[in-house]
């Protein structure tokens, strides 16, 4: 059985093709203005790498911000459901999943079977979401992927005066004008990001093992700062790219639903 998951986020779109419980191919692209275009492009990329066509996919589940506008899906599932399912598959011992999206931040508590116990999400405020880091990287004139590594180079990280993305920008500009090393500013930004995430995660109670999904999981500076704030080690995802967790979960849910339908 070949299934697919398509996760159309605000910043990136992801596709995963699963065959008999194994990841066959994956793709990640920057999202286009129209979710339908993102979905078609990312899915075609994964399909062509796998040497497959849409007809070979028995079912495809869509998720993410743009899930209701994906033309080819058989079904949709919430991001919370997909991230929970994907994280459990990637790290079966995971009991707390922290997912940072391009414009939200979610924390999900799972039981031993991967079932969702509770969750919390912030999508009201840009602080603590991928958008915060995106705005800051642009301000520093560096790539989003570069900001995470800079914490390690910093000897004295700055402290941002405000969690608000708008006020923090003014603060960062002032530090840049005062010729504070960019690494120290980047480290301060990573710490501020982690501090905001820690508040959200602590809201539902953090239980081991803790995993992080989404693109920010690849930001070493944020992960290290968050570990310090939570006082525990975050289990690394090695089986696949943490950014793909939602799409993997969607593809697994496609399998579940097919099996459920057949039974």
């Amino acid at each position: 059985m070949i299934t697919a998951g398509c996760d159309v986020g605000s910043l990136t779109s992801k596709a995963v093709i699963l065959k008999d419980g194994r990841i066959l191919k994956t793709a990640i692209i920057k999202s286009r203005p129209k979710p339908a275009d993102s979905a078609v492009e990312v899915m075609n990329q994964a399909l062509s790498q796998a040497g497959l066509s849409m007809g070979d996919i028995s079912s495809c589940v869509g998720t993410g911000y743009g899930r209701d506008r994906i033309p080819f899906v058989s079904d949709t599932a919430t991001e919370i459901a997909c991230h929970g399912r994907g994280a459990h598959w990637l790290v079966p011992s995971a009991r707390t999943v922290i997912d940072i999206g391009g414009q939200d931040c979610k924390a999900i508590r799972l039981d031993a079977g991967g079932g969702m116990l509770k969750f919390t999400a912030n999508d009201k405020c840009a602080s603590g979401t991928g958008r915060f880091l995106e705005v800051m990287a642009r301000l520093l004139g560096i790539e989003l992927s570069e900001i995470g590594g800079m914490s390690a180079e910093s000897k004295s990280p700055i402290t941002l005066a405000s969690a608000c993305t708008v006020w923090a920008q003014a603060d960062v500009i002032q530090h840049l004008n005062n010729r504070v090393p960019v690494a120290d500013i980047a480290a301060g930004i990573n710490n501020a990001m982690a501090a905001r995430m820690a508040i959200i995660v602590n809201g539902i109670g953090c239980e081991r093992d803790v995993v992080m999904t989404g693109g920010v999981a690849k930001n070493a500076g944020v992960v290290a700062a968050l570990e310090k704030m939570l006082g525990l080690r975050i289990k690394r995802i090695s089986r696949s790219d943490p950014q793909l967790a939602g799409a993997i979960g969607a593809a697994l849910i496609a399998v579940d639903r097919e099996k459920g339908g057949a039974a």
């Binding site: 414009q103 840009a126 958008r131 705005v135």
Partner: peptide, 16 residues
């Protein structure tokens, strides 16, 4: 959106 950062994006989309 209530957040200024998100509202700015929303407003640009509205203009477009």
């Amino acid at each position: 959106n209530q957040c200024v950062v998100f509202a700015e994006t929303e407003i640009i989309s509205l203009v477009n």
